[in-house]
Design a protein around this nucleic acid. Structure first.
Length: 427
DNA sequence: TCTGGGGTCCTAGGACCC
DNA sequence: TCTGGGGTCCTAGGACCC
């Protein structure tokens, strides 16, 4: 049996855990630059606030006063990342093995858990995560990952389940998928949902009744796997891979920028962030992609998008190497006369850093580079992120001197990672 | 005026090989 | 009129996830 454990309204729940005054109120968390709604409390959902809705529409289209009718927060990834780590740590002590699927979600194997114990185990998860971290979670358990997601869907929506739902018989499976709209199935997105409804497939049960040949022809192997999993036949296993295959750092800018210098500041910062993430997971990248684009929502301005991928002579995790290559790439794709809204850096062809194939002709002195990067990491770990950085990154980001730095008007405190922000309790 | 960021996997088609 | 068969590798783009 597989379990899927999913935090409820995760970002909002993180804010609520440290701010009891939010209880019972409509609360939303916004994406970077305070752009879109990315997490909503139940109250906010009940008011009709949609996922992904641009923040300005709260007032403009819904007539809501931000701060009164609805409380908004800028996203605080430092806080959410740390809270996620805590949730996963609690889970790791309860389940035999697990796959962290996203910041707020994880799959677990219930191998060795007897049929009679499954419900008790699920209840234990709900209770302990809430008790130890303050985060509410729901659990779905079933013989396949896709059915576990189905079970979780019901656990989330019906209070009577007390946070967990188990599909452990053919009867329950048929009942569960019979009432589930096809678009709610894990792996069926907007596109396929629309297509399937046009073919008369409205529920997950309808989908399982189509022939395998038809599904494969119209939706490829991925669709076929989803169909098999809904039928109770496990295809997907627990994926316990540690390292990512690609790492991205990108931002929409707080204000549009036009000069090469400003883009260099942004792109070098993104490349540096990618290098840091690589070192953290013990990997090196074989290639680096840089892209820049103008604001595609603005129809009155000239549009431009370009990207370039550079193959590194030797896979690297060095901030200095990656920044240098990224800036070379940027120079090639930069065009004068446009207002840029976003840039990003992607590193790929990731390998373990202890298994880097060295280049016979262009081998760099990795000993010296390594110590330099170690200094970067240790100084920044001790004194704060980007206290020590390369000059081209632009030194005054925190003071808002760089136009590209994102807007975060309603940022909450780093309650769990910064001693200055620790909660004080009057007793 | 204002519209996020970070991932995975698969497929089709082109270029090339024998 | 007739015009093979079997492969690999790479890339761009599409679908999905949170």
């Amino acid at each position: 049996m597989f379990a899927v454990i999913d935090c409820n309204n995760f970002f909002v729940s993180c804010e609520k855990a440290f701010n009891p005054a939010l209880e019972g109120r409509a609360v939303v968390v916004l994406s970077n630059n305070d752009g879109c709604v990315v997490s909503r409390s139940q109250e906010a959902k009940d008011m009709g606030i949609k996922m992904g809705m641009p923040a300005y529409q709260l007032a403009e289209q819904m007539g809501l006063k931000v701060g009164e009718d609805v409380v908004a927060f800028s996203s605080n990834y430092r806080l959410y990342g740390d809270m996620s780590r805590r949730v996963m740590t609690v889970l790791a002590e309860i389940v035999p093995s697990m796959e962290i699927y996203s910041i707020d979600e994880c799959f677990a194997s219930f191998k060795g858990v007897s049929v009679e114990q499954i419900a008790a185990k699920a209840a234990e998860i709900v209770y302990k995560v809430r008790k130890y971290t303050g985060i509410p979670v729901c659990v779905g358990v079933a013989p396949t990952k896709t059915l576990a997601k189905v079970a979780n869907w019901y656990a989330k929506r019906y209070k009577g389940y007390n946070g967990y739902c188990i599909i452990d018989s053919e009867e329950k499976r048929l009942k569960a998928i019979g009432k589930l709209e096809i678009g709610e199935v894990w792996g069926i997105g907007r596109r396929y949902s629309k297509f399937l409804k046009g073919e008369g497939v409205n529920t997950a049960l309808d989908f399982t009744q189509k022939s395998a040949w038809w599904v494969k022809k119209n939706m490829g192997i991925v669709g076929l796997r989803t169909q098999m999993e809904l039928g109770g036949q496990p295809v997907a296993q627990l994926d316990v891979r540690e390292e990512k295959k690609s790492i991205t750092t990108s931002r929409s800018f707080g204000e549009m920028v036009s000069s090469l210098e400003e883009l260099q500041s942004a792109v070098s910062s993104f490349a540096s962030a990618c290098a840091g993430k690589l070192r953290q997971q013990g990997s090196a990248a074989g290639c680096i992609t840089v892209y820049i684009l103008t604001n595609f929502f603005r129809e009155d301005l000239p549009r431009y998008y370009n990207s370039i991928t550079i193959k590194l002579p030797e896979a690297s995790d060095s901030t200095f190497v990656l920044v240098e290559e990224a800036l070379k790439g940027l120079k090639q794709i930069y065009r004068k006369g446009y207002l840029y809204k976003k840039a990003g850096v992607i590193v790929g062809e990731i390998v373990p850093c202890n298994a880097v194939q060295q280049n016979l002709f262009e081998h760099k002195d990795n000993g010296k580079l390594k110590s330099l990067n170690n200094v970067l990491d240790s100084v920044n770990a001790r004194y704060g992120r980007d206290v020590l950085k390369i000059a081209v990154q632009g030194g005054l980001a925190e003071e808002g001197a760089d136009k590209w730095v994102m807007k975060r008007t309603w940022l909450s405190g780093n309650y769990t990672t910064d001693i200055k922000d620790i909660i004080e309790i009057k007793a």
